[in-house]
């Protein structure tokens, strides 16, 4: 066990856990932030995507000890009231089916739009390729990313 001070969604949190614990489980079990999902545990599905500073990361393979003083943003902290342009575009296009993968999709899309304000189909596909949606909402996700890009301009 070791003590870590983390900045999660703008708040400082002190956590006493095994240093190998992946951020996914720190968030879900210790900080009660369950919006970040478990899908595979091996960085193959994207359900657990969070932002480490501004970069999208798979939290299931990110041990707490590797976070350092970088700040963490989860789906719960992406916006105050669900009004981040990506979240709004997701609602407008009614993207979710079961919804389980969508927090990860949204976090990947938000990071993509920070890097590339106007992604074309190829850019969306390659960045989002790590996020599986078993329900098959891919066409809608692409449309929603474009809508979000437009409103962020």
């Amino acid at each position: 066990m070791a003590i870590f001070n983390l900045n999660v969604n703008g708040k400082t949190q002190q956590i006493d856990v095994d240093p190998t614990t992946p951020m996914l489980w720190v968030l879900r079990d210790h900080l009660n932030l369950v919006g970040t999902k478990y899908g595979c545990g091996i960085a193959s599905c994207g359900a657990c995507t969070i932002h480490l500073d501004d970069t999208a990361m798979r939290s299931c393979i990110l041990p707490i000890s590797a976070v350092g003083n970088k700040s963490i943003t989860t789906i719960e902290g992406l916006s105050e009231n669900g009004d981040h342009p990506v979240q709004k575009a997701w609602l407008e296009h009614d993207v979710p089916q079961c919804g389980y993968c969508q927090a990860g999709q949204i976090m990947s899309a938000a990071a993509l739009l920070k890097d590339n304000a106007d992604p074309d189909d190829g850019a969306i596909e390659s960045v989002m390729n790590g996020n599986i949606c078993r329900c098959g909402t891919y066409v809608r996700i692409k449309a929603a990313v474009k809508t979000a890009a437009k409103t962020m301009k």
Binding site: G35, T36, K37, I75, Q87, G99, Y100
Partner: peptide
Amino acid sequence: TSRHNVDGLKIVTGKPLFGLDYKEEGMLI
């Protein structure tokens, strides 16, 4: 007509909705 998913806002803001998100006091894994 077209009506938006009633759970839509909860889904896109990461609210607890799914079985895996369910918790009770004193719960073990």
